[in-house]
Design a protein around this nucleic acid. Sequence first.
DNA 1: ACGCCGTTGGCAGGTTGTTGCCGATTGCCG
DNA 2: CGGCAATCGGCAACAACCTGCCAACGGCGT
Lengths: 226, 226
Amino acid sequence: MTNTVGTIRTGGTVAVVRGEEELVRRTSHLFAAATDIACAAIDLRTWSAARTESGIRAALCGRDGAEVRLRKVYRPNVLLDPVSAAHLREIRDVRGAQIRITPDEINETILIDRRVAILAGDPRLGERSFSIVTQPEVVQGVTSLFDAAWRSATTVEAYDARIAELRDIAPQVLDLLGRGVKDEAAARTLGLGVRTYRRRVAELMEALGAASRFQAGVRARELGLV
Amino acid sequence: MTNTVGTIRTGGTVAVVRGEEELVRRTSHLFAAATDIACAAIDLRTWSAARTESGIRAALCGRDGAEVRLRKVYRPNVLLDPVSAAHLREIRDVRGAQIRITPDEINETILIDRRVAILAGDPRLGERSFSIVTQPEVVQGVTSLFDAAWRSATTVEAYDARIAELRDIAPQVLDLLGRGVKDEAAARTLGLGVRTYRRRVAELMEALGAASRFQAGVRARELGLV
DNA sequence: ACGCCGTTGGCAGGTTGTTGCCGATTGCCG
DNA sequence: CGGCAATCGGCAACAACCTGCCAACGGCGT
């Protein structure tokens, strides 16, 4: 079978676990001892569901928040979902996490004290695989990539301000787009110029990290915005 | 409160019920006695879930299938979902239903013996409202509209044949579209000409009943095809 | 009032997507 | 082999979409 937690600690190897539950069992002690956690996620379901319910949250909350450096990078779409946005604010305010937003496609990643990297594998239904890496070279490489992404990302405050009023009309724009209404008609419906309407759509697509309208439709539906 | 079933029978009125469960309670006896049922639905969840599980299925199955004329109109997207397609075949083969496909936007409707019309209201979360109409003029109007839609719709066999090989490459096209890949690159990836690739997209959009790629993205996601 | 700043929306020019047309290719009969 | 039907894919015209530019408009602080 795959390596045990003990092997991970002593050797510099890679262990693959299947399922978040298993991941939590294997790594909760790492989180408990961590002073520097960096995390990249495309949404909140992936990491938070399993972890906050389990021992990790307790481990983190049991200590002084100032001791641990928490950095989190999300995709812009989390700001469109009210629930996600609220959760974001919570972990920022309560646990002192630093949160940034990046438009780049990033794989889901956790770095612990720059010594352990956890990388999420393919999103197979139900059973997702995670690679727990302690090999120094690999962790170093992942860390440098994460740091680069971190630097290029903007703080959530700046990003949030930038799309603040977008959120107001986003539902209407999404509704029109979802009904297949042409830009011309949609702009008239909203009492906007076509240019401004398209600006909205462009901002929306950027917020969704979509390169095409089809992709935007998929992402919007994923978030339940349509 | 709203009218009772008794009122529906004697007077020619409109009763509004909330929730499919309530609808079944009120109308199962109508289905039991029906010899001509016409049904329009955009997907299979809406009518089948509540009814097949309940008394209506029993009522229909308890009688000779030849006695009742079953006509059903669906949107094209049911053919893309394997589960829906299978269910479609079942009600056609087992219950002798005539099934047609229309690309038009149709409201969910049931007509019983051309005397009772059931129209689905807004898809409010969980509690959906249904109007049960027996007023002859209204039922007559709805019937004529349904008949028109029925005539203009194509048989499921013809439609199925038409998009048979589309289903083979649909997943790949959907994947490329969902990743925001440009037509040029997508066509190269599939080893197709750009014209042919776009033809695929057009067929796909028609199958999804989408007027824009955004809408197609939404629909595709709704069906879990991406 | 005046300048400053952000938003707006027209315009223009570019890219991408949509569709009809038609000849080339392929496979399948008679 | 010749014909037939279906598909493919280039071409072209058009519609839709995307974006930089800039003038116009409306607050807002001084």
